[in-house]
């Protein structure tokens, strides 16, 4: 059982949530009182808040909106800022959080993405950036054409950690160079038009470590590297790798411990060589 500073067992604790009713609306704080149980995580806290729908002063309110999926830290859905630190809420164990501060847990949405509502943010930019760097293997087709290229254990062991990236966005939240892009929806604008306009706005902004690392992953694949030049062009373009300020925050917050700075280093060298070759008339 968790004890407070006076050695008393914690029976309940406060959860302060930064809420926002809609995109562009002003954020506000609400506090909830949650009964302590062993083995809780932030997800079970939010489930309890939804069930109560009542603040700590007894005022009725709407359930806090949040994103979650697998609850095993492999889907990347439930990223939020917990006690000031970006992380997955499923693996944020209440006992650990209360060890830091037995009285209160604070929950905020990520600040680098537009808020949809409360803790739900729009991370479609991350998927758009995967299109920008053509993060796929350009196979001819899906007919039966035999096995893929043989690869050594070493190659697999280098590729696998990069391939574990679950597009959660922690690295981007922590990156000083990755800045929020939020477009207001115009009256009568269709979904497709709005999506298109957002996509174009994203395409000249910084890619960030997530997409750079995916470009490195596919440029190392025996078939993927057949379009390495396209990916390097994207990395060399506006919002490309030159924007990285080498703060190295990304690698520190990645929940999957992906060697993001190593990827950025590899990408930087490859872009330089690619550029020099282009200057001298190579591919």
């Amino acid at each position: 059982m968790i004890k407070d500073a006076y050695g008393h067992s914690v029976k309940s604790f406060q959860v302060r949530v930064q809420r926002q009713d809609a995109p562009g609306a002003a954020p506000y704080w609400q506090t909830f009182n949650v009964e302590y149980e062993p083995d809780m995580n932030v997800i079970s806290v939010l489930q309890k808040i939804a069930t109560m729908s009542r603040t700590s002063t007894g005022k009725e309110t709407t359930p806090v909106a949040w994103d979650c999926g697998c609850l095993e830290e492999v889907c990347g859905s439930c990223t939020m800022v917990i006690n000031g630190r970006v992380r997955q809420s499923c693996s944020a164990l209440v006992d650990r959080l209360l060890e830091d501060n037995p009285r209160e847990i604070t929950l905020q949405p990520m600040s680098k993405f537009p808020v949809v509502r409360d803790l739900v943010v729009d991370r479609s930019r991350m998927f758009r950036n995967l299109q920008r760097v053509k993060a796929w293997v350009p196979v001819d087709g899906y007919a039966d054409m035999g096995a893929g290229p043989r690869q050594s254990r070493g190659e697999q062991e280098t590729a696998y950690p990069l391939s574990e990236c679950m597009t959660c966005g922690c690295c981007l939240e922590a990156c000083p160079q990755f800045l929020k892009v939020e477009l207001e929806r115009k009256p009568n604008e269709s979904d497709a038009e709005y999506k298109q306009r957002c996509g174009e706005a994203y395409d000249t902004e910084f890619l960030g470590p997530q997409a750079i690392s995916q470009a490195v992953l596919f440029n190392a694949h025996p078939t993927g590297k057949m379009m390495a030049g396209d990916r390097l062009d994207a990395l060399a373009g506006p919002g490309g790798i030159q924007v990285c300020g080498n703060a190295q925050n990304c690698v520190a917050v990645c929940p999957k411990h992906i060697p993001l700075t190593t990827s950025i280093g590899r990408a930087g060298r490859a872009v330089t060589i690619h550029k020099i070759k282009q200057i001298f008339g190579g591919s």
Binding site: M145, G148, Q151, Q156, F218
Partner: peptide, 13 residues
């Protein structure tokens, strides 16, 4: 074999 061609990092011998 198809998934292998699509780049799935299967463990190797």
């Amino acid at each position: 074999e198809l998934m292998d061609r699509l780049g799935v990092p299967f463990n190797r011998t």
